[in-house]
């Protein structure tokens, strides 16, 4: 059995599901953020696989951009979490219900 595009796509799908599971199930803001990173990485993996199996480098350029945007996103997100922690002394989503009616 040769490893092909579908193998990579299934690994990517599994990783994405794991990341989503982390976002849905875990209650710590930082771990939720890590789940987001996992989902981004899963999308990157499928893009690189498509790029390889279609002989087109645009997919890799896309992944390059995604990594850069993800770095910016992590910086801003973590700064937001720190600012929130300063105000509320918590990083738990269950304690952050100010907007709840």
């Amino acid at each position: 059995m040769n490893v092909g595009l579908q193998h990579y796509l299934i690994v990517s799908g599994l990783l994405f599901s794991l990341g989503l599971l982390g976002v849905v199930v875990r209650r710590n803001l930082l771990v939720i953020f890590m789940g987001l990173e996992l989902m981004l990485n899963a999308a990157n993996l499928s893009l690189v696989a498509f790029s390889r199996y279609n002989a087109n480098l645009d997919g890799q350029v896309m992944v390059f951009f995604i990594i850069t945007v993800a770095a910016a996103e992590v910086a801003v997100g973590l700064a937001l979490i720190v600012a929130l922690y300063r105000k509320r002394q918590t990083a738990h989503v269950e304690d952050l219900t100010t907007l709840k009616l």
């Binding site: 579908q6 299934i10 599901s17 989503l20 849905v24 199996y53």
Partner: peptide
């Protein structure tokens, strides 16, 4: 877990229907 499993099912079905392609 149920919601994620459902999504995983959709992803797997669509991944299996992808054209295999060939490594360049």
């Amino acid at each position: 877990s149920v919601a994620v499993a459902a999504l995983l099912g959709i992803l797997t079905v669509s991944a299996l229907s992808a054209k295999p392609g060939s490594p360049a």
